[in-house]
Design a protein around this nucleic acid. Structure first.
Lengths: 134, 134
DNA sequence: CATAAATACGACTGTATAAGTCCGATTTTT
DNA sequence: AAAAATCGGACTTATACAGTCGTATTTATG
């Protein structure tokens, strides 16, 4: 459907919450899920992924939560999608480079042209930073 | 998954087949589905949609088939997606303009920024013509 | 030191949408 | 009349996404 996944949207909402809040502020997954009406469990996993990837810092235990580690201008949309959905912002099915992922790999006439479009989209998403979404 | 649907890919392959073939040449759905190993029924529907939308001309009966009506430089990726998937190239879920399609419409902080990105993507896809995919 | 509040994470289920199939109707050439 | 093609609705199947659940771990604090 050529659309961001909900997880990515939830991640963006959360990241923006950190970015517009007081610098270094700590928020819990519960606070954010309450504030934006996002399913807690799902948001929790998204934040965990962002933490594992080094975008957020996680603080365990009572009075724990998350805080932003990277600067908003260092976090690109491409990175966020990559972290949360485990994939590059992918437009074309034949984004892969081998014959395994597409049965008509060698006879496909649109693979190369779409690859070019792919790269342009990638570059675009790399240049859209969290800073620009505030 | 932020990816073109197979139908759109099949449509692109078919359109390119027309575009690189002899000018005014007629091809049947079967010929194309055989040549590119695309499920016949599915491709047939895609071609029907493209014909209904005026991109192709359909010719009934024996020795019928399809031929290109519009020029490759007049057919944009945006148009093709719109015709085949019945939707605009949509990146953001909150692409709609009313409160019905998103439960957190009024509290969502990323709707506007993503809307801007949406419009940029749209413009990009409108500027990618079939001509450029040849 | 026990409890509560938080993250961590894998496994599972439900659901919506895409992908593909099937069937019958219609059109048109030969 | 028969064959070859488009037309289009209804149906089934497959898959990926969204969401849920259970349990373990960490840590501040009374």
């Amino acid at each position: 459907m050529l659309q961001f996944s909900r997880k990515v949207e939830y991640g963006l909402i959360a990241l923006k919450h950190f970015a517009i809040g007081p610098r270094g502020a700590i928020f819990t997954a519960k606070e954010i899920s309450d504030e934006y009406n996002i399913p807690y469990d799902l948001l929790a996993k998204v934040l965990q992924k962002l933490a594992r990837a080094g975008v957020l810092v996680s603080l365990h235990g009572v009075r724990g939560g998350y805080t932003l580690r990277m600067k908003p201008e260092e976090i690109s949309l491409a990175t966020i999608i990559d972290i949360i959905d485990n994939e590059k912002p992918l437009i074309t099915a034949c984004g892969c480079e081998d014959t395994e992922c597409c049965e008509r790999f060698d006879i496909c006439t649109i693979r190369e042209p779409l690859g070019k479009i792919q790269r342009e989209i990638n570059t675009f998403f790399q240049n859209v930073t969290l800073q620009k979404i505030l």
